[in-house]
Design a protein around this nucleic acid. Sequence first.
DNA 1: TTCTTGATATCAATTTATGATATCATTATT
DNA 2: AATAATGATATCATAAATTGATATCAAGAA
Lengths: 102, 102
Amino acid sequence: MADVMIHEFLLGFIKIYILQYAEKEPVYGKEIHDQLQEYGYKISFGTLYNTFHGFEEKGYLIHEDRNINGKIRKYYTLTDRGKEAFNKAKEKAKELFDALYE
Amino acid sequence: MADVMIHEFLLGFIKIYILQYAEKEPVYGKEIHDQLQEYGYKISFGTLYNTFHGFEEKGYLIHEDRNINGKIRKYYTLTDRGKEAFNKAKEKAKELFDALYE
DNA sequence: TTCTTGATATCAATTTATGATATCATTATT
DNA sequence: AATAATGATATCATAAATTGATATCAAGAA
């Protein structure tokens, strides 16, 4: 059941979390995938990379290629525009969250 | 932009909120639709009623018909199974939420 | 009976998610 | 200088979820 719930309830939240991560420090796809998995959240690579691309198209993220041990990684960083979107999402999420715990 | 963000980030959260509402007191579709709209969250009737039906199929909600001013309303109430799902979702959401505000 | 009203249901079209597979860029191996 | 190996990203056909306009419903009023 836990799996189903992620799809149904938590995917949007995971996306906010991606923005937040990218605010703290540059993040790449595989890293966040594995990290989320470790904590019991599943997001497919298809959805994940598509999410990164979508965020970049919307101007929320930009990436730079880094060569790590001879492998290319795309490190994504939050833009100002992304920060704005993130803050709004966070705020709205908090509203709903507070309603949940009031 | 606010609209887009609801779709992208908050829809799952709204679904948790529906469960929570149904725990406090019986809720019907139009009511929660209008209430959410008032607070700036939009969910289409298609998605909303489909969500109610899905939750009922999964055994999270049951409904009873009530005649209010000559109009039928379907009041949905949280079941024990639904309570279980709600608590898990809430817990997972809190984890992610705390990560957002840590 | 027919109209109105508040609400729920439907469904074709669109959008989003999945995950298996392909591809990429670099280093190591032969 | 090919070729294999590796870690990561990209693709894309299929599947699932969302939309919203429209249809339907049930009951009271005209």
